[in-house]
Design a binder for these strands. Structure first.
Lengths: 146, 146
DNA sequence: TTTCTCCGTAACTGACTCAGTTACACACAA
DNA sequence: TTGTGTGTAACTGAGTCAGTTACGGAGAAA
């Protein structure tokens, strides 16, 4: 199985509501940009809201970031969406009567944790603001070419 | 989707055939340690063989590493089993007429690649020998306790 | 040779996950 | 009151994964 596109869609959603924060935004508007259905968007918003990345619902108002985009890291978003899901999966159902089978789950837990820490450290170092900046740079460059 | 346990099982398999290389090994023996079926083991062996991590089939002989366990990195095994599979999934099906939707796939491709590079770098730094060493340390410590 | 063991591989199955849809009650604004 | 958008639950179809059955072939032993 694979890390779903929910994480990507969540980052898309957050970038969208920040870029267009001066305009009225509905789940329909967002869904049109992500190419998905409004319900999927609302589910994502609900998850990001319980993680306090999106502020509380205020009847009819467009969703807003709870804090500055500079203070939201990609790791925050990852955990909001994927919770404690690991990047690599350890097979814990092994034969405890075999020296290898008995100890490899713990060994892989440790080894994988090191690799995951490296990836998550990078996600922690990248903020939502960084993502939006890159989007805006790409958008401006497109304008110059055409 | 999540990275399946195939990667873990492959590392288990490789550790097993290296630790018990002085003994006769069948897919049945290995399957008993991994707690799976011999067919699953044979499929794994086939994949590791095409990646040249396990040496060619020599009728009836037990499977052997193609090179020293010190020269096999976890990244080698990862690519043998999961090929180019990415740790994070980019949703490329977005609306190109929206500034955010048009550029976020490329931005996430880049950002994810940085995080993946960090994780894969760690996998490259870890060898099969390291894994086996840790298994043997754990095994010896168990002996002392009991 | 015949028999036995093990291998490689293909085809099928059941469980699980994911994205998407339909549906419906609720809140707020016009 | 009507309309719009929200939150949430339930269902669906596609896709993936691990496991199983099955079968032909190679090599060793009788």
């Amino acid at each position: 199985m694979r890390i779903s596109t929910k994480f990507s869609d969540a980052l898309h959603l957050l970038s969208f509501i920040e870029v267009f924060k001066s305009q009225k935004i509905t789940s329909e508007t967002i869904a049109a940009s992500i190419n998905t259905s409004p319900v999927v968007v609302r589910r994502l918003i609900a998850e990001l809201r319980t993680a306090k990345i999106i502020g509380p619902y205020e009847g009819g108002c467009s969703p807003r970031l709870a804090e500055s985009s500079k203070d939201v890291t990609l790791f925050d978003v990852y955990t909001a969406i994927e919770h404690k899901r690991r990047l690599f999966n350890v097979d814990h159902d092994t034969n405890p009567r075999c020296p290898v089978g008995a100890h490899i789950p713990d060994v892989l837990d440790t080894v994988y944790a090191e690799a995951e820490a490296a990836a998550f450290g990078q996600l922690r170092r990248t903020t939502l603001r960084d993502v939006i900046d890159r989007i805006e740079v790409a958008h401006r460059m497109e304008g110059e070419v055409s």
